[in-house]
Design a protein around this nucleic acid. Structure first.
Lengths: 167, 167
DNA sequence: CAGCAATTGAGACTCAGTCTCAGCATCGGG
DNA sequence: CCCGATGCTGAGACTGAGTCTCAATTGCTG
């Protein structure tokens, strides 16, 4: 919990209404779940969590709702070094990038103004109009390094999965 | 062509031998294809090109060889904003990142020392030992902007496919 | 030439994600 | 109160990228 989710539900409803769409029970449940528990998650993980809670929501609805959430700007789709998407919610707070530990699979977020500025400068030089960016740095985090975990080779990152779900 | 491919073939053989593995006709053909023609490519695209040239190589072998090439460091696996991998060959030249035009699908490469330094500094601050990174900036390139192509929303990038192949 | 490990192709399989379609919910008129 | 329109839903078929299995083949090496 730790966070009042109603604000996001409201924002989503506003977005939907602007499109002549409706905030249904399923959509509300998904938004609540996303904003109260998860931070980074996979679509199937979300599906699984809902099933666990005995809230029956179909795969199709989960994907459809995620798409709407991405369009509304409440959720962002990110690559985290694996070969499928991850999602993260955006609680009004600013953009960030990811350090991904290839030993434990953990994700550290960071934001750096200098980095953002530099990217803008690069785009300007190339006459490129950026809308979005995505930076992942793969490596080994401090605690894994202490434990002497040897880094997996980058191309094996995708194999390091803490959670395997899908019923 | 434009580039002598034998050096890469040799490097690959050295790598394979170090592992007690063999440089077969199929592997040689793939390396030659990769280093003489493509720059960024998808696995299936490579498979298709080989078929086109009447060099029969199975899907499994293409994927297996790509994995070996990634391990050997001759080829790099990158995300280019779509939901599956792309590959690019590494001809001894340095690391670079990508500007990806969401209107035309084009890819502009760039390398910036300052950016690299900054990333190292960020990692240091977080006590993170980087091995690899991947930065994509999505947006609209100069020529698309002139043509007034309106930018696709980031989450639709994956739909913009110039080439659809597979058999 | 026999033995043996590495390699191969065909095709089954997996898994994330998409699509289709019939049935349901809701709403604004008549 | 019923009607049609519109949007939403779940079930499950489908897709496409990538992986795995296994029997057959290759290419050493002794």
């Amino acid at each position: 919990m730790a966070h009042n989710v109603d604000r996001e539900v409201q924002r989503f409803q506003d977005f939907l209404q602007g499109q002549g769409q409706k905030l249904t029970a399923e959509r509300t449940a998904l938004v609540r779940e996303i904003f109260s528990t998860h931070y980074h998650f996979e679509a199937d993980e979300l599906l699984f969590k809902m099933k666990e809670k005995n809230v029956k929501i179909s795969r199709a609805t989960v994907y459809r709702t995620l798409e709407l959430l991405v369009k509304s700007g409440l959720v962002r789709r990110v690559h985290l070094g694996e070969d499928h998407y991850h999602y993260e919610h955006v609680s009004g707070n600013s953009h960030h990038d990811h350090l991904i530990c290839t030993a434990c699979g953990g994700v550290i977020e960071f934001h750096d103004e200098e980095l953002e500025r530099l990217q803008m400068a690069i785009c300007e030089k190339k006459k490129f109009t950026p809308t979005f960016h995505n930076l992942q740095i793969l490596g080994v985090c401090d605690s894994c390094k202490r434990k002497g975990q040897h880094p997996e080779s980058p191309d094996r990152v995708r194999m390091i999965q803490q959670t395997k779900l899908r019923k």
